[in-house]
């Protein structure tokens, strides 16, 4: 389903990714691990087409994402370190805008239900610039649950979360598995990687092991 071939990326002549290649099957969850600065986030951003690779190709469902029309990103969701939302908007407004970007306005009716599930219903109309890191992290989970993409690219899903939040991430990943959807999760915890990942990819010195 996802083909990543020979991806190279360097910053100021410092090579971060050096010919990364792997494939991911439908329904497979990959745990991407590696030290800080090993290029995990860079790789996710290249797959999501936020960042340009120096060379290489990324194909999803047999469409080259680098050359193809933007519509082929419809079933891919990238969630980075930051929530990717607007600070002056409330969760409701942010989620509405997110759905409108993906032509999924029919899902607007589920916004309240999903916010309730992640314990954010009381803040539905508050601007998110007053939210804590943990609340913003939970808002990322709401985005994923609402969009339900075929391929999820999630950078550090457990970051800033309390025990309840960690449990919610575990549940969400379990649901992704049940629905036979795919995900690439950047993880730092070996145990979590073994539990959730069908395969563990380790990034080191720009290569995958």
């Amino acid at each position: 389903m996802l083909y990543v071939k020979n991806i190279c990326k360097s910053f100021n002549r410092l090579s971060v990714l050096d010919g990364i290649s792997f494939t991911q099957n439908k329904g497979e969850i990959i745990a991407l691990m590696g030290k800080n600065g090993s290029g995990k986030s860079t790789l996710l951003r290249i797959i999501a087409r936020i960042m340009k690779a120096d060379s290489g190709t990324v194909a999803f469902k047999e469409k080259n994402l680098i050359a193809a029309d933007s519509i082929h990103r419809q079933n891919i969701l990238y969630i980075g370190h930051d929530p990717g939302l607007y600070s002056f908007f409330s969760p409701r407004e942010n989620l509405r805008f997110l759905l409108s970007l993906r032509s999924l306005t029919s899902k607007e009716k589920y916004i309240e239900e999903k916010l309730d599930r992640y314990g954010l219903i009381d803040f539905i109309d508050n601007p998110i610039n007053v939210f804590s890191r943990g609340m913003l992290q939970k808002l990322k989970l709401v985005q994923i649950d609402l969009i339900n993409p075929d391929l999820l690219l999630f950078d550090e899903p457990y970051s800033s979360l309390d025990e309840d939040g960690i449990l919610l991430v575990d549940q969400l990943i379990a649901e992704i598995k049940i629905q036979n959807k795919s995900a690439i999760l950047v993880l730092h915890d070996n145990q979590k990687a073994k539990i959730h990942g069908d395969r563990i990819l380790r990034l080191e010195s720009g290569s995958i092991f």
């Binding site: 519509i71 082929h72 607007y86």
Partner: peptide, 19 residues
């Protein structure tokens, strides 16, 4: 600057939207 604050620009750029 709004776009950079919570990296909202990445959300727009990675979405299936004609840039």
């Amino acid at each position: 600057a709004y776009e950079k604050e919570f990296d909202a620009f990445s959300l727009m750029v990675s979405a299936p939207v004609d840039r």
